[in-house]
């Protein structure tokens, strides 16, 4: 059984508690949370979660300069807020080009969402 390791960055305590209640699942392990992004970055580096859930500002950018380093560190980032039902999913991918044709291949790849 594959376990998803999850970390939560939150602003409102009720958001965290709601997520914590919803993630009570045998294949999900909530390894940590923080309301401080800098502290979260350190813990994410140490705990290496597969998924980071970020409670965003309804009026802000889905990913900003504070959360970009988290995305680059590897986990799938799910950004959501308490204002609406929109959910943003980000996945950082890194590849090395061997041939120029590889660029075309990447461009022509179908993503997860059509």
């Amino acid at each position: 059984m594959k376990i998803s390791i999850v970390f939560v960055i939150w602003t409102n305590p009720l958001f965290l508690e709601s997520i914590r209640a919803l993630l009570n699942h045998p294949e999900i392990q909530l390894v940590g949370d923080s309301s401080d992004v800098s502290q979260a970055q350190k813990e994410i580096t140490s705990l290496r979660p597969n998924v980071v859930i970020i409670e965003g500002n309804p009026d802000g950018n889905p990913i900003d300069s504070e959360t970009l380093p988290i995305l680059k560190s590897g986990p799938r980032v799910i950004q959501m807020n308490m204002g609406d039902n929109e959910i943003y999913i980000f996945q950082h991918q890194h590849r090395t080009l061997v041939d120029a044709k590889d660029l075309l291949t990447i461009i022509l790849e179908k993503g997860d969402v059509e």
Binding site: F15, E17, I19, R20, A21, L22
Partner: peptide
């Protein structure tokens, strides 16, 4: 509440 996560999460929280 029309917010799916909040509504479902609150239900679980309050039922505790």
């Amino acid at each position: 509440d029309d917010h799916t996560v909040m509504r479902s999460g609150l239900k679980l929280l309050l039922e505790g």
